[in-house]
Design a protein around this nucleic acid. Structure first.
Lengths: 210, 210
DNA sequence: TGACATGCCTAACACCGTTAGGTATGATTC
DNA sequence: GAATCATACCTAACGGTGTTAGGCATGTCA
């Protein structure tokens, strides 16, 4: 049983936690993932680095919490796509939205999808719930498409299919983030490239009886 | 003009440089990219950290040199694929070889293709030479396919097409490396998944007049 | 043999994530 | 209202990081 004391302090803690996460987002944007340090983060909210440790067990957990929050926001940003009836069309549009998100927030994208050893939490997101979990959202559309016989017969597993579709977007996006600054490769603009890739992949995955 | 003195010392330096790169490879394998430190690297060859700086300007450059060397090795590993006549078949096989390489050397893969701000050197690899540059090798096959009218009419640019194909493999592989340890997603085995993805993408890219 | 270049060293700087231990504030209880 | 107590935050420190400044000792060359 909690006393009213801890209630108030919990309200305070929630507020501080939010301030930390907001500052984390800003710091990530300003200094990138490599320049992200506990001391700099603390300075942004007028704390000492150790102060953060009363609200998060370690740096990984700060980033993980930020990741969870923004993963939810990312799913929310997929917005009205859910209302599109045709599951394949929904998949098509999710791809474009994904590219938009990654292009506009490359450091967040890198944190969310390109950083090994950064696991999701056990608690903060309702896994498997399409309303919060973007993977579940994609998987739902795929399962619908499967049920409607929209995919070629060799594709039977909704997870494998989801991962293939995800990989297509992720591949183009993450190559641009990791190697886009490298003039080794004459990089082509990502949006038109992805549009064509998306069409090609969907054409190759689906039955074409229109 | 160099004197014979520097000739000898250059031979020595080359030897040390090789020792450093070999130790780097081993350290990367043992401790991963995050555990890679100049002090640990130096200890492996019986040096102090500062000793390394006589052979490489900084840590990034050690990793870059390692990347260049192994990028060449990766291309070499593509081996006999070059002898396959059909360009589309060549592309298909490159994909599989790529997945093999990444699955067997995830830390190297991460260094090569998932690390931002790590540019290739200006000198160590003959860019654009299919014999040393894996991207050029892929692009060559793509250009052949284009010339033979094997791709759908909306695909005209060899670079864009190459990047789309590359993105497909890279997406699956890098998702597994970055997120494969995360039980959030019920990951499917990468090889069969890629096999199906490869087929689907190629089917969607090429004309199907067999 | 003397001069010199240089490969490697020790010492140090400024940063990093993290822990131990203290202090002061503010709520709870009598 | 006073005493107690939990706790949010602090300072100091540890062991690590990449990197630089400066010294020393070796080996080449005149």
């Amino acid at each position: 049983m909690r006393t009213s004391n801890t209630d108030r302090s919990e309200a305070h803690n929630a507020e501080v936690k939010k301030k930390i996460l907001d500052a984390s987002r800003a710091l990530l944007l300003a200094d990138g993932l490599d320049g992200f340090s506990m001391r700099k983060l603390a300075a942004r909210i007028g704390y000492t680095a150790t102060g953060i440790y009363h609200h998060f067990p370690d740096k990984q957990d700060v980033l993980r919490a930020l990741m969870d929050a923004d993963f939810k926001a990312f799913r929310a940003g997929l917005g009205r796509i859910g209302k599109v009836d045709d599951p394949v069309e929904r998949i098509r549009r999710m791809g474009m939205a994904y590219v938009e998100f990654a292009s506009e927030h490359p450091d967040h994208y890198r944190l969310l999808f390109m950083t090994p050893q950064l696991k999701h939490s056990d608690t903060d997101i309702a896994r498997g719930d399409p309303a919060e979990d973007a993977y579940a959202f994609l998987r739902g559309a795929v399962a619908e498409g499967l049920a409607a016989g929209r995919f070629r017969p060799e594709f039977r597993d909704a997870d494998e299919l989801s991962q293939i579709i995800w990989a297509g977007v992720h591949g183009l996006v993450s190559l641009h983030i990791a190697k886009g600054g490298d003039d080794w490769v004459p990089w082509k603009p990502i949006r038109p490239a992805f549009r064509r890739m998306n069409e090609a992949l969907i054409r190759g995955l689906t039955t074409n009886d229109v």
